[in-house]
Design a protein around this nucleic acid. Sequence first.
DNA 1: GCCGTTTTCGGCCCGACTGTTTTCAGTCG
Length: 582
Amino acid sequence: MASNARIARDLQLIGDLLELQDANPFRVRAYRNAARTVEELNRPLKDMVDEGADLRELPGIGKDLAVQLAGAAHGEALDALRELREQIPPGLLDVVRVPGVGPKKARALWQELGVEGLDDLEREARAGHIAGLKGFGAKTEERIVQGVEQVRRFAERRRRADVEQAIAPLLAWMRDLDCVTTLDVAGSFRRGRDTIGDVDLLVVSEDAPRVMEHLRRYDDVEQVIGSGDEKTSVLLGDGLQVDLRVVEQSAFGAALLYFTGSKDHNVQLRRRAIERDWTLNEYGLWSKDGDERVAGASEAEVYEALGLRWTPPELREDRGEVEAAETGALPVLIEVEDVVSELHAHTDWSDGTGSLEVMTSAAAERGLAVFAVTDHSPALKMTGGLDREKLLRQWEALDALDVPTGLRVLRGMEVDILEDGSLDMDDDMLERMDVVVASVHSRFGLPEAEQTERIVRAVQHPQVNVLGHPTGRLLGQREAYAVDLHAVIAAAVEHDVAIEINAHPARLDVNDHWARVAAHAGAVLSINTDAHAPEELGLLRHGVLQARRAWLTAADVINTWPWPRLQAFLAKEPGWRESSDD
DNA sequence: GCCGTTTTCGGCCCGACTGTTTTCAGTCG
């Protein structure tokens, strides 16, 4: 048995290996499309196979892949992968990640010099063996030496919030130039992805050369990777790559659309353009002969010409949004302003830095109507978790607290899910709480079956309202633990437990994919900051972005509900689903 | 490898920049 994620990774790997083999590029794409299809299924492939579903009905799955996938769902290796692994050294996949080295060059290096990985590549480059190869030269060799270093240092994508912070001074520097009319960050940053590979800047200006020059002169630019009339790429001191494009006002919409992506979304739009006998590029939507521009000044204009509604960037992942934009079925996505309740936050009673006064005041200042105090339970020693005596004292303090007008403060706790799935607090105490967030903070390494059973058991506990950061991942630091989230979500639906979208930029847990799967399965979501300091209540927007990427509307998220409905949900009163406001 | 009210074969999105070339392939987004 293999998870969807695992099968999708293997399909992706087949695509990468095929490329190294110089295979038909459309065959490569077929595997990558199949990887996406499997990744985005909202139920386990294995279940579908067991039920006898015809996999050929899935997009991008034909006769051959249907057979391979049926085997893969039950743990067999994919045929194509088995063969490719025997033919191609796996280390070549790292070689391709070196900037300037693609599949063709990697293959040449392997065949001519026996390069099978980064170490080989660096040795051959430093020894000067590469410059003489056909198609290579001194510049390429030099760039490879730098590139190997870069791959080793900056292997992973960065957290979006970190990138946001890192580029703030750069954006200010660019906006400072008088000939910059408009400056936008496009790419995966604009789409709100949880991690970012590089930064795409789009500038409207009448003086492109000056804009390029200005970027090159930014004092944190470590290396200019390339610079031409329309685009410039640089590497900043911390290794972040920034790509700049400059366009004229009349092409701004088409360019923004193009550089926002995703690539797959753009492919869909171009297909539609072709169907209408037009062609779409970053300069506009054109008649087939290319001399008449149909649209291009704004994104909305381009979408409209293609018979589509303007589509929020967070949805542009080719996950069905083009069809929805055609039929008017795009969701009205949740906004930061919709959120009126914070249900997971800490104070200095455990590991937070803010007192009850400071945290509740901060919540009120942000316009929240409900703020839950959910400090840690005692099992987490390092957080100074509260035992029942200390918790009783906290409640006394809450009773005596001068609560800001308009704010409702809830008694709660982030209770540890112990190894056996029981909760780290007595039931009689849990019963007296307004809200219980249950989370895993230990024993991440349990086998999947045990981890799943553990969490499902906690979700079944009658007092639990929210499952906190359900996968335990820390972006760039720790992988999600092994757990069958399909089973967890099913239990959450049955027991009226909300699945958390933890808004902390290091967590964003569950991610956009699982949030969408959960909503599809009938679960409700809860976006919380897990704030440990007053300013961290501002992290909310990161969670909302992920919710938007998951196609969530305000109604899907309990933190937007008016108090009577939220109260009914937290008390597990039947009828909370029948809302009055949606 | 997938896909089809124009098709079961012949398509499958578009352009900039670089380096190594001698007119363009490879890489990248």
